[in-house]
Amino acid sequence: MAYLNLPISQHFATGELPAAVRAALGKPLRRAAAINQLAVVGALAAVPECRRQLSTALLWQSTGGPRSETQTLLREVCAGSGEAMPYDFLAIQPAIAAPQIQGFLPGLQSASYFPMDNEATAQWALVLNLALNLLDEGRYAQILCAHLELTPEFAEGHWLNLSQTPLENSVIRLQLTKHQASEVLPNTPDFPRQLNYWLARTATGTLNLQSPLAYQQALEFTRR
């Protein structure tokens, strides 16, 4: 079982992201790819200051990832000199987000990146199942789960923060169940936003997240 704070969804016009970074950090985040900047801004919004030292794992996903940076590097290497600029190569490495986040979230101890294989669905069922296991095993105090997306027009992040013990402002309990709730949300990238809509329109009740049948049990969200 785990407890969740209010889900967080962020949406920035692409040009607004640097200002959002400065507002969150008090300074620009130099030499960081746009998706890593989005990750830092979201992680800080999802974890209150008093919990940033706690042991934390990050499980994050993206459909496009560093797509435009990959195109830039392909042109640079294949249609240019054959050489790459070091920063352009680093910009296509999603793994580099983790050490950049750890500078502001000292408790971050592990991170995994799940790139999507299609545009319609996400891996929330997978990452939330993994998060429940990690919390059950006592490996971390909190697990951050996120879906981050960049397009030429906007940057968007959806975040869930799970912990084993309820926080003062925990609004949802998450557990596994073999029972089907009356309401099931699809496993889409913006699932946290849909969860917020559900919280806004229901005072009680439970909700399932659509999961692969192979997982044998469903993820059940209960309003506290």
Binding site: S62, T63, G64, G65, R67, P94, A95, S112, Y113, F114, P115, M116, D117, N118, E119, Q123, L126, P212, A214, Y215
Partner: peptide, 23 residues
């Protein structure tokens, strides 16, 4: 989709179960 290739891989392997990619 960053890992669209994973779907091609699953097809080559003739697998149609849950699919996840990790990078």
């Amino acid at each position: 989709a960053n890992a669209a290739f994973s779907r091609q891989l699953a097809a080559w392997m003739q697998l149609s179960g849950p699919l996840a990619s990790i990078s």
